[in-house]
Design a protein around this nucleic acid. Structure first.
Lengths: 175, 175
DNA sequence: TTTTATTATGCAACTATGTGCATAACGTTC
DNA sequence: GAACGTTATGCACATAGTTGCATAATAAAA
């Protein structure tokens, strides 16, 4: 359901074409729920089929038609239901941790490379977060509650990533 | 691949029946990679089909046969390959965060309930972690490196969970 | 002027995971 | 002695996500 929910949220304020939605999604919710463009187009079509969206086709000469999607009342209802009902716990899936359970067979060199590469990714993520914070949230005091909410998610992302970095560095040192 | 990897790790030291494997898995790797018993049985059969495991059927009268699985050389090789190659980054999927992007439509009461329930789950997880630490890792100094490794994962789990708890409590207070 | 990136759509096949159900013996609790 | 939990296995169907490919115009860079 969550991809649906993400698209409902993206379309909630204003209608848009598949590509519009893709762009909005990339700018915001994609940091929180990753998906490919193929997945979005497919899901939009299914949601239309299920009556959550209407789709108006704007014919264009010498180009594929643009399809403008819009929430229906059923779509708005589906979003509200999703928001109202508590989420089930999401499964833990950390393949990196799994490797730790095979420590004896994990060659030392591979391990070092893995951890180094991993730390690099984490640091890059922190850089991305900092850029987003700079661009969108440089004046936290002036934010409305609704604007403030995604900022919370950003800050948690930052803290979790920092926790990871500290841990990786400790493991690397000890080893 | 990761479910396979998890099973290869579980079977690496000694052979076992599906149910044995399930029990070992629950005691360790399940904290790091969740899966159902149906998934395990299915995957074990597929791995046998792919030549990673051998399966010896022990017939039993008046009961379903027990199937003892064992790593083949190909299986051991597959595990080593998996350990040697770096993991691709796992996709971020946090439905709870998605809700924050629909703050205006998220009813206050539902929000409070969600956050309260979520905090409760986190605290329960911390309790579980503490129990595991007590039972398996009460003397960290005496651990061999291979025993020490899963302890690292436990400690990261604890720290990440604590970071979550702090965040949830801040959000709840501010709200 | 050829190549490359961007805009704009999507299908088909595959892999992975989840859900519901089924069977059947044994031991334990009400 | 009936009901429930544990041991022990799995199939079938459904949902979710990945990968590879395809088309085709326009703008920008080489």
């Amino acid at each position: 359901m969550s991809l649906r929910a993400v698209l409902l949220i993206t379309l909630q304020r204003e209608p848009g074409t598949g590509y519009d939605i893709l762009q909005r999604f990339k700018a915001g919710l994609a940091h929180v729920w990753q998906a490919s463009h193929q997945q979005l187009y497919r899901e939009l079509d299914r949601m239309r089929g299920d009556g959550l969206l209407t789709c108006e086709t704007l014919p264009q000469t010498e180009r594929p038609d643009r399809k403008v999607y819009q929430l229906t009342e059923a779509g708005r209802q589906a979003l509200d239901n999703w928001l109202a009902e508590p989420l089930s716990t999401s499964p833990v899936r950390q393949p990196m941790f799994a490797k730790f359970f095979a420590w004896e067979r994990w060659p030392e060199e591979a391990r070092r490379e893995e951890l180094t590469a991993f730390r690099k990714q984490l640091k890059e993520r922190l850089t991305t977060y900092a850029a987003i914070e700079q661009e969108w949230f440089s004046n936290p005091e002036t934010l409305t509650p609704a604007q403030r909410a995604p900022w919370h998610t950003l800050r948690l992302g930052q803290r979790l990533t920092k926790t990871w970095v500290e841990w990786v560095e400790e493991v690397m040192e000890e080893d």
